[in-house]
Nucleic acid binder design. Sequence first.
DNA 1: TCATAAATCACCCGAAAGAATGAAAGAAAT
DNA 2: ATTTCTTTCATTCTTTCGGGTGATTTATGA
Lengths: 142, 142
Amino acid sequence: MRKLKKLNRIYWIYGGVMGLLMILLEVIHYRTMVRDIEIEVYGAIIGILFLAFGIWLGTSLIKKNSQEKYDPFKLGLSKREVEVLELLAQGFSNQEVADKLFVSLNTAKTHISNIYSKLNVKRRTQAIQKARDMALIHPSKE
Amino acid sequence: MRKLKKLNRIYWIYGGVMGLLMILLEVIHYRTMVRDIEIEVYGAIIGILFLAFGIWLGTSLIKKNSQEKYDPFKLGLSKREVEVLELLAQGFSNQEVADKLFVSLNTAKTHISNIYSKLNVKRRTQAIQKARDMALIHPSKE
DNA sequence: TCATAAATCACCCGAAAGAATGAAAGAAAT
DNA sequence: ATTTCTTTCATTCTTTCGGGTGATTTATGA
């Protein structure tokens, strides 16, 4: 639903930019009616414009593809649990998680256990994996 | 050293393709000397070619940037240890790692401990993190 | 206001993980 | 040949994890 909507808007943008580009070309075309001399320039301009547009379009498309799965914490995870998950993925121990959140070790463990059952995993490494795959947490790099 | 070399080769390739594109345009240009009628077609061809080139170039550049750090296991890691690291990153327990490599649990634990000291970490989650960051192991997705 | 969910903490227990050593056989290098 | 490295395994000990259960205190919403 929302996904489709968003994708569509992106394609509208692409279309719009493309249209603007065409208009720009038309303008250039009718401006340089003294073509016989200017045809090389005309070609160069078109080339540069479309090259730029292509690069922009290509990079945009890749970026869209590599993100956009972002499942918010709608797997029953509470915001506190997402916080904990974030810390887990950063390699902290139970005790460290507890300290960072200013709660007791027992509380941290409770959160972590709940995360496991909600993510349907048995170990923290699996939880981290799943969280990354489903983009439940902030990506580490790039 | 090797990094620079590789990057340079990539730019050579880009340059080469760009050159071919230019030659192609020249050919098209002198082929369609009946321009007054064909100038729109000429523009369209240039546009399409450069658009395609731009997209290709853009996506290639992004991909190159997002990889390319690949540090082989020159941190003192033996090949066996890299194997173990690979399995760790897949979320397996010590026992599972041992089973998959047909060695005893003790052996697996020894490898894992050695990995920790070589990567200078204290926990398996940190080892996995570091292995990913330094691209010591195969990426999980994409 | 009453029920429900979230967040907090405690206690117990067994399993897994990790640290510290030692040791031994085979491969590889010099 | 003789080191050096790798891989293998064992033992002991401590710490950390994870499961299970139960309880209290806010919030939130119906």
